[in-house]
């Protein structure tokens, strides 16, 4: 058991070291949602009034509404960036070091997912701290209760990232992930606007948003931040995390990961 613990510790520590060494990665992870919060939200505040909806008890400014969506945006980009790192590791050969460990590959991959998720959480709380200073202040207990919700969402999106990376043969193909995964997941969700607004605009867009897993991720975090439990969102996120992880492990082909050119 100690061997497993040491291995998990080592993988998390490596992610942490890489994260610390790549300060620009941390900054860019913060700049993106902060731009949305400070610039985009300021512009939209006037245009988009938010009525009283769950889990909020009163009318809220738009900045308050988009905080959970932006927190999940960090997790989404990091999950996909994790998959980019997997493809990069594969091309640079460092994936081979991981795979020649005597511990089971399922454990190694799950450890990698957990490591990515934990690093993402640091960035989310960095963002929430700045948002707090900016004036968006969810209840302190909500910030604590959101931790397991954020961890679950981070794991779900990291598993999705790993699943996608299994299908990507080359680093250059990763741009497609941006266009076909990140943007649709983000914009067709409740991250930026409540679903009832979307229903007013278009019924079929509303349904797309309603079935989007990212919507449920955002709602799980939104409710947790305000000390409420979104049962359906929790069940969906749990189920999808297990499903994505299983599929990612099953479709992981060390042959793709190890050597791209037969010698």
């Amino acid at each position: 058991m100690n061997a497993y613990w040491q291995c998990l510790r080592g993988i998390v520590l490596r992610e942490w070291l890489r994260f610390v060494l790549q300060r620009t990665r941390f900054l860019s992870a913060l700049v993106r949602p902060l731009l949305w919060l400070v610039v985009f939200a300021a512009g939209f505040r006037a245009a988009l009034g938010i009525s009283v909806i769950e889990p909020y008890d009163t009318y809220i400014p738009y900045e308050v509404y988009i905080i959970p969506g932006l927190a999940c945006m960090i997790l989404l980009f990091n999950g996909m960036q994790g998959s980019l790192a997997m493809v990069y590791d594969r091309e640079m050969g460092s994936m081979r070091v991981l795979l020649t460990s005597p511990l089971p590959r399922t454990f190694l991959l799950c450890s990698k997912l957990l490591a990515t998720a934990l690093i993402s959480l640091l960035q989310v709380y960095g963002f929430l701290a700045i948002a707090w200073v900016y004036g968006v202040q969810p209840p302190a207990m909500g910030l604590l209760l959101a931790l397991p919700a954020l961890l679950l969402v981070a794991l779900m999106l990291s598993a999705l990232g790993l699943l996608l990376s299994n299908g990507i043969r080359q680093l250059e193909n990763f741009a497609g992930v941006m266009n076909f995964v990140i943007f649709p997941l983000f914009f067709l969700s409740s991250a930026l606007y409540p679903l009832w607004k979307m229903r007013d605009a278009s019924q079929w867009l509303y349904w797309l948003c309603a079935v989007n897993p990212f919507t449920h991720a955002v709602e799980l975090v939104r409710f947790a931040l305000y000390e409420r439990l979104a049962g359906l969102a929790l069940a969906i996120c749990l189920g999808l995390t297990v499903l994505f992880t299983l599929l990612a492990v099953l479709t992981f082909n060390p042959q793709h990961a190890a050597l791209r050119k037969p010698g």
Binding site: A3, Q6, G10, I11, L13, L17, V97, S101, P102, L108
Partner: peptide
């Protein structure tokens, strides 16, 4: 750090 990472992957205490 590279060596320690490898040691961890092999489960060394």
């Amino acid at each position: 750090q590279n060596l320690r990472y490898h040691a961890a992957l092999h489960g060394l205490s």
